[in-house]
Amino acid sequence: MADRQDLLTGTEAPPEHLALDKHKLGAYLASRVEGLGSDFRVEKFKGGQSNPTYKLVGQGKSYVLRRKPPGQLLASAHAIDREYRVTKALADAGFPVPRPALYCDDESIIGSAFYITEFIDGRVFWNADLPGIEKVDRTAIYDSMSAYLADLHKLDYKAVGLEGFGKETGFTARNLKRWCSNYEQSKLVDVPDIDWLMQALHDRLPESEPTVILHGDFGLYNAMVHRAEPKVVSALDWEMSTLGNPYIDLAHNTRAWWEPLGFAEGSATTLLGHDLDALGIPSLDAYVDRYCQRMGISAIPHLGFYFGFVQFRYAVMIQGILKRASIGTGVNRNVRHTQDRVFAIAALARKTLTES
């Protein structure tokens, strides 16, 4: 069985349906991006399932290109324009993200909209238990991940120029409606637990919620760790970023603690079954408590609801990947998800919501 770190780390030649027209791209970028030159190399990053991501290796500098995938797309997915906007605003405010260089909506260049951002040379870990890392460094990496998320949630979105990036109220209800719609568009087989969850979550919606800048899919797999130090220095994949409820962002961030066992071919790993004390990784309760301390709150209201919600949402995300793979628009040839995984996560979400 291939190890995820080997499977998803590094670059590869783009598959035919995701190949770039280097001549057109080079002509477009020549006067717009410094240090790339005309004789650059194009490599596709192995990781990621949504927006194809490439490394452009130039004569004096390397960049990253993020694009929408070709083919028929879900209406609300692949929002690279929003990804560009939020990362530019955060970078301008001094928050640690890859700094965007340009956005292009001219689909004639490579066949879809894209943007260019700086390349950050760091480490991305695909195994939640961080094999091969010293115990003290595991502790530091997880603590740094909590700090990064809390620092993001404490930013004043108006002060950094993101007023209007999302509605200021009603996020959870809108997000639930969106993911219910995404599920209907991605459905391949009947999943009774998801049908139950769509109604049960609606019935349990909290009456009020705070509003902050959300990453939308922040986990170890989207955290860029310094090449030599156990510190998160940036975050990748801001496609789902918006203004909304921070507790949904946190609950999704804790996925490794509740990711079901028995799906070793998935794109992320679980901490279930591991001795966390021996590894130096905090328990789920300790991790949530540390986040609360950083946010200056004693506890998170309706925490069980938020965990059930993000588990439901995660099941629908995987269903979307399976749908794209079934119609040939998936961006990663190594799709590690299965329909059984959707069933398992939906069942977990129903259990979480029922017991909370």
Rank of each mutant, 00 (worst) to 15 (best):
R324C: 06
I213T: 02
V316H: 07
A79T: 11
R350T: 10
E209V: 04
I300K: 09
G111W: 01
P96N: 13
W257F: 04
A268W: 04
L130A: 00
D105V: 09
F343L: 10
Q293L: 12
L36N: 01
D121Y: 05
A286C: 12
L348Q: 05
S356W: 13
V64Y: 08
L205A: 05
A93C: 11
L220A: 07
Y148H: 08
T338Q: 13
G122L: 02
V136W: 02
T117S: 11
V335C: 11
G166F: 00
R178C: 02
N182M: 13
G262F: 13
G170Q: 04
V310F: 04
I327L: 12
F95E: 01
S241E: 07
H153F: 01
A140E: 09
P69A: 04
L162G: 06
H337Q: 14
F40D: 00
G273Q: 07
R178L: 08
L18M: 09
Y157L: 12
A101R: 13
Q293P: 04
N182K: 12
V57F: 08
L18W: 05
E239S: 04
D289Q: 15
R32C: 08
Y54C: 01
N245Y: 11
D277N: 15
K323Q: 14
W126E: 12
S186D: 10
F343C: 06
S356E: 12
L205T: 02
I109Y: 07
S108I: 03
T11W: 07
L20E: 06
K55G: 13
A13E: 14
R41Q: 15
I80W: 01
P301M: 03
P52M: 10
E355Y: 07
Y183C: 07
R227F: 04
T270C: 11
A13T: 12
A79S: 14
L284R: 14
A150N: 05
W238L: 03
F309T: 02
V331A: 07
D195S: 13
G58S: 11
A128V: 05
S356C: 14
L348Y: 01
V124A: 08
I327E: 15
V225P: 05
G216N: 06
A173N: 09
P131I: 01
W238H: 02
F309I: 06
A2N: 12
D121F: 00
Q339C: 09
L272P: 13
D193I: 03
N182Q: 15
C104D: 04
M317W: 11
R85G: 09
A251E: 05
C180P: 00
E163A: 14
F307R: 01
L236A: 02
L348C: 00
I248H: 14
L36H: 05
E207N: 11
S186G: 10
S144H: 05
K154T: 06
G60E: 15
V191Y: 03
S31Y: 07
S298Q: 14
H78P: 09
R255G: 00
E16C: 02
A325T: 15
V225L: 03
